[in-house]
Amino acid sequence: MTMDFGTIQFNSALMSITIGVGLLLIVRFMKHLKRSKIGQLEGWSIGFAIPGFILTITGANMSLKRPLYKLDFHINNIIFGEFSLAFGVLLLAVAILLWRKANVFTKNNFDYIDSMTISRILMKEAPILLKPLSYFTFALGLALISIAIASIRLQLLSTLNGELITSSFTKYPLVEGLFISGLYALTGIGAILLPFTLKQYAKPSFFKVMITCWQIAGIAFILFGMMIYFTLSEIIIHLMGK
């Protein structure tokens, strides 16, 4: 399969890095919450809002607009674009919830309460606040697992000829496909486990597996985004030579 530079999504690198950052932010927040180290919520709210906004805008553009006239890569656009859009909206929802909770603390003169008290309040209310979101997260996780299986079976994400790094694996088309599918599977497993970690008597192992999956996937998405930025240099040179 040869690369058609006219169909490449140049914002996919930013999206990949942003997905990784979003996953790692969730992991960090949950770990801080478990250890009663949550401080001011405004910072966390903005931290979730930034990747949420980026993924919502770029994901909507990729999944709703590009496939209508860039048909060569419409499968990849839908798979990556729709996932980014859904994850971006979820991050924005979390940002709004945290911002509203911060306003509640402010109105009740709780500005200077210690992080342990804030964490205890959030631990008590989080299962109730996040339960509605967890249903969509669970369904999204099932979709991600489905994408991972289909990608391996149908080689939807096989390596493209002409890429600066991944072209080294052209003889092994499943290498990149297995890597991306693994990221989708890890993210999906974590998403499926989220509703079960919110139960009153949830098993600690569920939380540990969820956090581990999202942490590995988050780091891998960031590294993959860095690799895409590296390959963009060849694409730009190719376009300049036309």
Rank of each mutant, 00 (worst) to 15 (best):
M1Q: 15
I8V: 14
Q9P: 14
Q9V: 11
F10Y: 15
F10P: 13
N11T: 03
S12D: 10
L14A: 02
T18F: 10
R28E: 01
M30A: 04
G43Q: 08
S45C: 00
F48P: 03
A49M: 13
I54A: 07
L55W: 08
I57L: 12
I57D: 04
T58W: 06
T58Q: 05
A60F: 12
N61C: 08
K70V: 02
H74I: 08
N76Q: 13
I78F: 14
F83I: 12
A86D: 07
A86W: 10
L90N: 13
L97R: 08
L98K: 07
W99H: 15
K101Y: 06
K101M: 01
F105G: 01
K107M: 12
F110D: 14
I113S: 06
R120F: 01
M123N: 15
A126H: 11
L129C: 06
F136K: 11
A139K: 15
L140H: 09
G141V: 00
A143I: 01
S146A: 09
L154Q: 13
Q155Y: 07
L157Q: 14
L160E: 01
T166L: 00
S168E: 05
L174T: 12
V175N: 03
G177Y: 06
L178Q: 03
L183M: 09
L186M: 05
G188P: 07
G188L: 01
G190S: 02
I192V: 12
L194Q: 13
F196R: 15
T197Q: 12
L198T: 12
L198W: 12
A202V: 02
A202I: 04
I211T: 10
A217Q: 02
G225R: 00
F230R: 12
I236D: 01
H238R: 14
